[in-house]
Nucleic acid binder design. Structure first.
Length: 758
DNA sequence: TCCCTCCTTGTTTTT
DNA sequence: CAAGGAGGGA
């Protein structure tokens, strides 16, 4: 597999072979699409409604720019949000041109950001080989920081801190730009300080998190106009997919890069903006014309996907939103069926009815690949899975635990990371006691203390520590053995293909054996996954390449060869389409979700409505909406009301079907039901916001430096004190290691920073 | 150091 | 209800 992030170092010597690119055929496009393709110069916003051929416009436009010679491939920057989208873009443009395109900048925001950052890492205090941390690593780091400050993880949940920091990064805010007011009310007022320290730690670890990949770019651009100028001039044409999902940081990044040529083309649909909760700013797309003066706006409103009823139902629904640019989708298609709305008794019946319909369609010859169940929340898939298993209908759950997020894969990768980059403390900590080797928190604390005092990485500290008597003999031997293994594996890298090295590492470390001895039912699958990992490794040039790839590419596309119905969340369904779509769980509290209602106000309700719009517009020919009268939430049975979105669907496009199993539900609508619903939702989870004032924590009580000897010089004969061994006298000095004759403990080798002069 | 029990907490998720 | 984390006891 070619490395999808194989960007050229910019700008390279022109490729020797001028490629025989063919001009894309514009006659196949409709009027709007052609306008969007031909408006090459200047800022352009393409408002592409669902199913209006957005990708086609984007790819044809790219092909056009390249084929007419308006720009060389490396002068074109095309950014997407997912690797899948980037891959698709590459493939389709290559197909249009009839030849592969080399050295162009097509990738996700993060991949492109990483590429730029590696070239200028020094100016933000990183080395070019910095590690990219994922959210799991981040969390680990934040927990450490909380602990170091004696901050109660119950009052200040690490997850919350992580979220706050991430949101700040989304907005392009470095720690020095957090206003006092803002810092004060986040996470008991700790967040601002923690953010600063978190960044310091990352720098010390030579690591960047996902947010940093863009945030550091912004800093580089800000501090170094020459570098910025280089990229501004290089990128003659910039294309952005899914612009409605960009956050402030991404917007600033794009605006900075587009300053020289102003040829930026953003494609998006404000009605499909469903990621505000992770920092996306619909405002970016709503404001485009002000941000880029002289911008041309092209609307794509001819829908090639859905039947008129489906389209009208979706349009009628989304028309209730206030903050939108507004589009009127239309279609040439024949009428088709109305959107079917069905009430059922409970979740089980819902699953039963849906699966019956699936079976009926399947026996009529419809492929399962053409059907999908789209749910609001992940837990909803369970009932469908159970039912599908009973009926022996093949299914796939999309967006479950991803391959690279599985425990065993992350462990294996941590081993590789330590071998490739010994300073990777996060990875080291993850595997130092996996499998269990008796190097628990106590030994680790020792390492930490030393590493902090000496400003070194854990592995470096460990190398030093095993030379001394600081550790108990057993721990010392184990740690020494582990370090020897690291060295050994590192030396293998030069001599052996990296998949073999990996297998060796997994075997020799005892990691494989650990799972082989594990009697739980998952163990076998985990071993399978490890094999799969080794197999996947063969596709990469080197371990380094592989690690870069997986830190950025967390996707796992399954083979789509066999016929299976898809189960996924509405979020996961964006960008996909199916002949038949089932939309269960349209109930107040679940969809729109109670949490959105409680926390996000009217804006959040509009986002939920957009989510409903996305769901409906995934359907080509058939859409079924379901609502149950009773649903089990957190183990309790609740009576629930049909979603307001059901009421908002235009009557003429909806067939409100035989009222199945509404015996209790609708009848009780007048009073008791809604009251009970209200009580249940009011009572449960949404008090997480209640903030109690915490006593101020005395951070001085935590001491990082063990002794005071770190920067002291010791001379032979000097009296000293050591935390563990007590008083003694220096008998020899070897650099920062001392031989001490202890009064009680005999002669020991210890590290200077562990003793203090008395 | 490890294991067990108790308690809390429950969307959506890419990179 | 169910999972994950924290804290306590062996």
């Amino acid at each position: 597999m070619p490395d999808p992030f194989d960007f050229a170092d910019a700008p390279p010597p022109p490729p020797p072979q001028e490629q025989p690119a063919r001009l894309p055929d514009l006659d196949a496009l409709n009027e709007g699409q052609r306008q969007a393709v031909e408006a090459i110069d200047g800022p352009v916003l393409v408002l592409a409604g669902a199913g209006t051929g957005k990708t086609r416009v984007l790819t044809t436009r790219l092909a056009q720019i390249l084929a007419t010679g308006k720009a060389k491939p490396w002068q074109v920057l095309a950014v997407t949000f997912t690797n899948k989208a980037a891959r698709e873009m590459r493939e389709r443009v290559a197909a249009l041109l009839g030849c592969p395109v080399e050295r162009w900048w097509v990738g996700t925001f993060h991949a492109v950001g990483a590429r730029i950052l590696r070239a200028h890492a020094e100016s933000v205090g990183l080395k070019p080989n910095f590690t990219i941390l994922d959210s799991d690593d981040q969390l680990r780091l934040i927990k450490q920081l909380l602990k170091a400050h004696n901050i109660d993880a119950k009052k200040t949940p690490p997850r919350a801190v992580q979220g706050i920091i991430q949101r700040w990064k989304d907005r392009g805010l470095t720690p020095d730009r957090i206003s006092d007011a803002e810092g004060a009310d986040a996470a008991d007022g700790h967040a601002a300080a923690l953010y600063g320290e978190y960044q310091e730690r990352l720098k010390a670890l030579n690591a960047a998190d996902f947010g940093d990949l863009l945030l550091h770019c912004l800093t580089v651009f800000r501090n170094d106009p020459e570098v910025l100028g280089k990229y501004q001039n290089q990128f003659r044409y910039i294309l952005v997919d899914e612009y409605q999902d960009t956050n402030v940081g991404q917007y600033l990044w794009l605006r900075a890069l587009a300053q020289a040529h102003h040829n930026i083309c953003c494609v998006g649909d404000d009605d499909q903006s469903i990621y505000s909760w992770r920092g996306a700013e619909v405002g970016n797309i709503l404001r485009f014309e002000q941000d880029f003066p002289g911008a041309r706006v092209v609307r794509l409103e001819c829908n090639y996907r859905s039947t008129p009823h489906i389209l009208a139902a979706a349009s009628g629904l989304i028309a209730r939103n206030e903050s939108r640019l507004g589009k009127t989708l239309w279609t040439h298609m024949n009428e088709g069926e109305k959107v079917a709305v069905r009430g059922v008794w409970d979740g089980q019946e819902e699953a039963r009815v849906v699966c019956e319909e699936v079976e009926v369609l399947h026996t009529k010859g419809h492929s399962l690949n053409d059907m999908a169940v789209l749910v609001r929340a992940g837990f909803q898939t369970r009932e469908f899975e159970e039912r599908l298993i009973i009926l022996a209908i093949p299914y796939k759950v999309i967006g479950g635990a991803r391959f690279y997020e599985r425990q065993e894969i992350r462990d294996a990768i941590a081993y590789l990371r330590v071998v490739v980059q010994p300073d990777d403390d996060i990875a080291f900590e993850r595997i130092v006691n996996v499998p269990k080797r008796g190097l628990g928190p106590a030994s680790l604390r020792n390492l930490h203390v030393l590493a902090r005092a000496e400003g070194q990485s854990l592995v470096a500290a460990a190398e030093k520590l095993v030379e001394t008597d600081e550790l108990k003999p057993r721990a010392r031997r184990t740690l020494g053995g582990l370090l020897d293994q690291f060295r050994h594996w590192r030396s293998l890298l030069a001599a052996m293909p990296h998949p073999d090295v990996t297998r060796t590492i997994l075997d020799e470390s005892g990691y494989t054996a650990m799972w082989r001895n594990d009697k739980t039912p998952e163990a076998e699958g985990r071993l399978e996954n490890l094999k799969e990992l080794v197999r996947a490794l063969a596709d990469f040039e080197s371990l380094g390449d592989f690690l870069e790839h997986i830190s950025l590419v967390m996707d796992n596309d399954e083979a789509v060869t066999d016929d299976k119905i898809s189960l996924m969340t509405l979020h996961g369904a964006k960008g996909l389409e199916f002949e038949t779509v089932f939309l269960p769980g349209w109930e107040e509290g679940l969809f729109p979700h109670q949490r959105a209602l409680d926390e996000g106000g009217p804006a959040a309700l509009e986002e939920e409505r957009r989510l409903a719009y996305v769901g409906l517009t995934r359907a080509r020919r058939r859409a079924f909406v379901f609502h149950a009268a009773n649903r089990q939430v957190y183990g309790y049975w609740q009576s629930v009301l049909p979603s307001r979105f059901i009421t908002e669907l235009p009557d003429e496009n909806v067939e409100r079907g035989a009222p199945l199993g509404l015996h209790g539900a609708r009848a009780g609508r007048g009073g008791g039901v809604s009251e009970r619903t209200a009580t249940v939702f009011a009572g449960s989870a949404w008090q997480s916001h209640a903030r109690r004032s915490a006593p101020l924590i005395d951070t001085r009580s935590y001491q990082v430096t063990p002794g005071h000897g770190a920067d002291q010089a010791f001379a032979t004969g000097q009296r000293i004190f050591h935390q563990k061994f007590g008083y003694g006298r220096v008998v020899a000095v070897n650099g920062d290691k001392l031989d001490i004759q202890f009064d009680k403990a005999g002669t020991k080798k210890v590290i200077q920073s562990f003793v203090e002069a008395v």
